[in-house]
Design a protein around this nucleic acid. Structure first.
Lengths: 234, 234
DNA sequence: ACAAAAGTGTTGAGAGTACACCCATGC
DNA sequence: GCATGGGTGTACTCTCAACACTTTTGT
């Protein structure tokens, strides 16, 4: 039950931890899987980088808090986001007990609005494969997020949520290769992605630079979030 | 980051929600997947059944809190348990803001100690397929837990964590059938389970009642928790 | 000997994997 | 015409699914 230690205790009587949401914001930047971090200005961990996040307000749900944090940092709302895990080691924040519910979001790079405004904190994009020193237990959270992202790519088809609205199959394959850190076979990739039936041709073609123009695809809006397939890649 | 809305705010200044852990305790009882519930004695939801849980103490981690709750209700500590999801809709508890981190545990029925002591709350086992009316959003939590349990059974081999230390393959298959609510093919089941290489023969045989005595198995202690296989069942 | 549950193999279908060449365009 | 990236098919292997009879025990 939600509380019953004894049940007649007023929950408000107990010591209460602070509760935050942290949002791991993934994007593909420069052929790299990157994550948005914020530079802390104050102790503890002053001048170190940290995952964007903040307190859960008393009137908003956890997911609303995560969406709000995401919007504050990126100006974006309609992206793939899911709850990752909750972290609550007693001294993860040296000041006081802070429990954080971590989310992760997949954001197409082209929709992100740089907003140095708001809380005026310095932000930066960092490669997931070359992270700076991080505040709190944030490295652990990022590593957990990467594991989960890779896992999801293997048995669902969320990868395109990191790409612009329309994209080529080569771009999608490159996204998968970057995140999984392994090379995939072009023909097998295309067959499987198309077999999952979540993409449709736009009829348009991408003509830029050299080479044969590529068909542009978008994803079907009615595609179920969790495409229950077998693992997409070995 | 863990908190930075502005960063120099003392986290302790914010309004803080109460934080609980709720533990969905699964067990196999009478050829049925059942869950342990507690009868509430006080408002809100007086006399309704609820998932056992309680406040997270300031000095314990979330997992420690879940283990403590589990031990309080069942007297058992060394079982399979994992964090399920965090639920935080603002009015899920009508009294005040309560965020709960839900866990689920798989407990072999034979190790459970009935303990009507402790908080003297009435407890009961209920079929997951015939639940009573539940307090708070606890029905939602239970349904989520069942979905997750079924999903895990499909691609890992945690099913035996609901059985006694040693068990027969028929007992294990029955456990899977009960939880998945579908009949499985005996030969295919045995082949797959044995192929996953997490069980070993004890050399003993179960001789009770009629029929040919069955080999008894136990699971290898060194079996990795997450057996990364393809889905075990269709 | 018979009732009851344990145990065991094979076949066909579908999915996964590996692999190499032609196509459309820009310069 | 050549450089660049896009696009395509096939053969082999492996996994999955369907399916029925024999074995060992207790009574």
């Amino acid at each position: 039950m939600t509380e019953n230690i004894p049940q007649n205790y007023d929950p408000s009587k107990y010591d209460r931890p602070s509760v935050t949401v942290d949002v791991v914001i993934f994007s593909l930047v420069d052929e790299d899987l990157q994550v948005l971090l914020i530079k802390r200005k104050f102790a503890p961990f002053a001048d170190m980088w940290a995952i964007p996040g903040g307190f859960v307000r008393m009137t908003e749900s956890l997911e609303e808090a995560a969406i709000r944090e995401l919007a504050e940092e990126t100006g974006v709302t309609d992206v793939y986001m899911e709850q990752l895990y909750s972290f609550g080691r007693p001294n993860r924040d040296p000041r006081t007990r802070v429990i954080t519910i971590a989310y992760f979001a997949l954001v197409p790079h082209d929709v992100i609005q740089h907003r140095p405004g708001d809380d005026a904190a310095e932000t930066g994009w960092f490669s997931m494969f070359d992270l700076p020193e991080l505040a709190f237990d944030h490295r652990e959270i990022l590593e957990y997020a990467l594991t989960r992202l890779r896992y999801k790519l293997e048995y669902t088809a969320v990868g395109f949520r990191l790409l612009p609205d329309i994209f080529t199959l080569s771009e999608l394959q490159r996204a998968y290769e970057i995140i999984l850190s392994e090379k995939l076979d072009k023909r097998n990739f295309r067959r499987k992605i198309l077999a999952s039936d979540i993409l449709e041709e736009t009829g348009k073609k991408k003509r830029d630079g050299e080479g044969r123009p590529a068909k542009l695809y978008n994803y079907k809006e009615d595609a179920v979030a969790e495409v229950k397939t077998r693992r997409l890649f070995p």
